[in-house]
Structure formats: structure tokens, C-alpha cells
């Protein structure tokens, strides 16, 4: 399920400019995919499959989104004025700073949503038992 959902989320992200979709929706979809894994296999396994620091990912998303507003400043235009490549790239579509900004939104949404889920799952006062259980399970897998 995971790769399929991820592909769907990227598809949603890229088509967002012309058809329903976009960074928010794509990000939520990707986060759902990861959370599905967390719920199904536990946080440790999910982290092993996709070893990502979601806190950093969220911060990076904001940074990535924000820097694509800068080119306009250098051109003497107001911040975030759009720039577009003249020709669409096959399979991806037209690329311009708003699309790249949307990619930043995508990362932030994934990072924030997944990190909250991870925090809740790993909270010992919420799940005292599952964490104790998951440790021996992993040992069995290792063996």
C-alpha cells in the first residue's frame, strides 16, 4: 500500500495546479500513508522503512517554501512574485516558483502530521504496554 499511496500523493501534489490536488492534499495523503504504517506495524518499523526526521522535514518545508519567494526580490519585484519556466517538463508539468512553494507546503504538512502521530504513539503515558510489547517482537524478527 505504502508505495502506491506515496505515488498517489506525489501525483496529487503535481497535478494540483490544474486539477484538484496540491501541496496540502498531497501532504495529507502521504502522511496518511505513513500513519497507516505506524498503526499497522508500530512506530519502530515505520521509522526503519522511512528513516526521516519529521521535525526537520517540517522545518525544511517552510524553508524550502520561503526561499522560492526570494527570486522576485532579486528582480526588484514584491516578495513571492511568480516565475515560470517557459516550457512544461514532460511528465511533471509546468514548473514555476509557485509549484516549488507548493512542494514546501507538501513537506511541511507531511512533517507536522506524521510527527504529531509519532509523538502520540511514542508517548509512554499513552501507550505503556505497546512499547514494552514491541521490543520483544523486534527481537524475534531479528532472530
Amino acid at each position: 500500500m505504502m508505495p502506491l499511496l506515496m505515488m498517489l500523493s506525489i501525483f496529487m501534489l503535481l497535478r494540483g495546479h490544474n486539477l484538484p490536488g496540491g501541496g496540502f492534499i498531497g501532504g495529507l495523503l502521504a502522511a496518511s500513508a505513513i500513519i497507516l504504517q505506524i498503526v499497522a506495524f508500530g512506530p519502530k518499523t515505520a521509522q526503519r522503512i522511512l528513516p526521516v526526521n519529521y521535525l526537520l522535514l517540517a522545518a525544511f518545508g517552510i524553508f524550502f517554501g520561503a526561499i522560492w519567494g526570494l527570486p522576485a526580490l532579486f528582480a526588484g519585484l514584491p516578495y513571492m512574485q511568480a516565475f515560470w519556466l517557459p516550457e512544461p517538463i514532460p511528465g511533471v508539468g509546468k514548473i514555476g516558483t509557485p509549484v516549488l512553494f507548493d512542494v514546501g507546503v507538501y513537506f511541511t504538512v507531511i512533517g507536522v502530521t506524521t510527527k504529531i502521530a509519532l509523538l502520540l504513539v511514542e508517548e509512554p503515558t499513552i501507550f505503556p504496554l505497546p512499547t514494552m510489547k514491541s521490543a520483544p517482537v523486534e527481537h524475534e524478527e531479528g532472530a
Partner: peptide, 20 residues
């Protein structure tokens, strides 16, 4: 905005600053 999905164009272009 170079896009036909108006909602998304508003989000990332016309109102990009709000989204940020």
C-alpha cells in the same frame, strides 16, 4: 497564475504569503 485549479492557484500564488 498559469493554472486552471483556481483554489490551488489562490493558495500558492495569489495568497502565497498567507499560505507561508
Amino acid at each position: 497564475g498559469k493554472g486552471t485549479n483556481v483554489v490551488n492557484v489562490i493558495l500558492v500564488d495569489f495568497r502565497g504569503f498567507d499560505t507561508l
